[in-house]
Design a protein around this nucleic acid. Structure first.
Length: 323
DNA sequence: TGCCGAATAT
DNA sequence: TATATTCGGC
């Protein structure tokens, strides 16, 4: 495996900027084409290199053609083209990234979230980091959104901006989408704990409403939508059937026992609504949180059932002991 | 019009 | 999987 430099003498091409006579240009075109053949022959995948070569050849030919019309002093130096100084055009940047990164990244091109995964540089290349929600960088957003009680209205994924002023270079849809999207709320364990507390105070996840929960949590910046979304996930989580039937461990069995009685509790919840199932009470905690089905493998950063798991397990054991 | 739950998108 | 957004009903 000879080094690339041995086979490709591109380095020797660099001084072409020095001589820009017409004859020299023709010679360099030949040389460039030769380089191109070498690359093809080397079976190496150098798409960017090839593209640069192609462009350079085209440029030189074009240059050669026009050279009689232009004064020598006015002609741009080849270095201006060879991108030694010139920034790489966006298209080529994309091209380069797509070829130098994992294929997975291709699928995520331009979809990087601002708060995460900035390491691969894609988002930095293609997307201006936008603080979503407020102060959006893109003009289009202002014409299609209104804020009502902190929530956006009238924004849809297929929102049209046709009525807005003609934008010189409208950003591609995925960029607009990116800009319009809210910043992702991270539900830290602490926040979730307060969420659960609020749920308890309000009578459980079945009766508590997002607005109530939010008011109870008194978390600055927390919106109804965020609470609603979290509540939805929470409800789904507690409703998730214990699908791992093969795991008939004592814990699961205990859970099932508990679960059957839990249903009773829930049915009565609709009526009398035991407004406060205080954790200080024996072991009967926030109903849903005991679901052990999916919690056995959680690494510990699970915001959903960190503290509650302990309670649930002890509670299950109690159930096992007292049938 | 605001809130909600569910469905769907990202 | 987690969160955001949309949709339809109340």
């Amino acid at each position: 495996m000879g080094s690339l430099g041995d086979e490709l003498s591109l380095g020797s091409m660099l001084p072409i900027t020095i001589c820009d006579s017409r004859r020299g240009v023709e010679e360099h075109v030949k040389k460039l084409e030769e380089e191109k053949r070498k690359i093809h022959g080397s079976q190496l995948e150098l798409p960017l290199c090839l593209q640069i070569l192609n462009d350079a050849i085209l440029y030189l030919k074009d240059e050669n053609k026009n050279c009689s019309e232009i004064d020598d002093t006015q002609r741009p130096l080849l270095k201006d083209f060879i991108s030694l100084n010139k920034p790489i055009p966006e298209e080529k940047k994309k091209f380069h990234q797509w070829n130098s990164n994992d294929t997975k990244i291709k699928n995520k091109l331009g979809i990087e979230r601002s708060e995460e995964k900035s390491s691969n540089g894609l988002s930095m290349l293609l997307i201006p980091k936008v603080e979503t929600g407020l102060g959006l960088g893109l003009v289009a957003s202002s014409s299609t959104t209104t804020m009502v009680n902190g929530r956006r209205k009238g924004v849809s994924s297929r929102g049209s901006t046709s009525d807005s002023m003609p934008q010189p270079a409208a950003p591609p849809p995925f960029l607009q989408q990116q800009a319009l999207r809210k910043q992702r709320r991270s539900w830290t364990p602490e926040l979730h704990r307060r969420f659960v507390d609020a749920l308890q105070q309000l009578g459980g996840p079945k009766v508590a409403t997002p607005k109530q929960i939010r008011e109870h949590m008194q978390e600055e910046g927390l919106t109804n939508d965020e609470v609603k979304s979290h509540l939805q996930k929470y409800r789904l989580h507690i409703r998730k059937p214990n699908s791992n039937a093969d795991k008939q461990s004592a814990v699961v069995l205990g859970f099932k026992l508990w679960n059957s009685s839990q249903e009773e509790e829930e049915t009565c919840e609709g009526g009398t609504k035991p407004a406060k199932r205080s954790t200080s009470q024996s072991g009967s905690p926030q109903g849903p949180l005991q679901l052990p089905s999916t919690t056995t493998t959680t690494g510990g950063d699970s915001s959903m059932e960190d503290a509650e798991d302990d309670k649930s397990e002890s509670f299950q054991m109690e159930r096992l002991r007292s049938p």
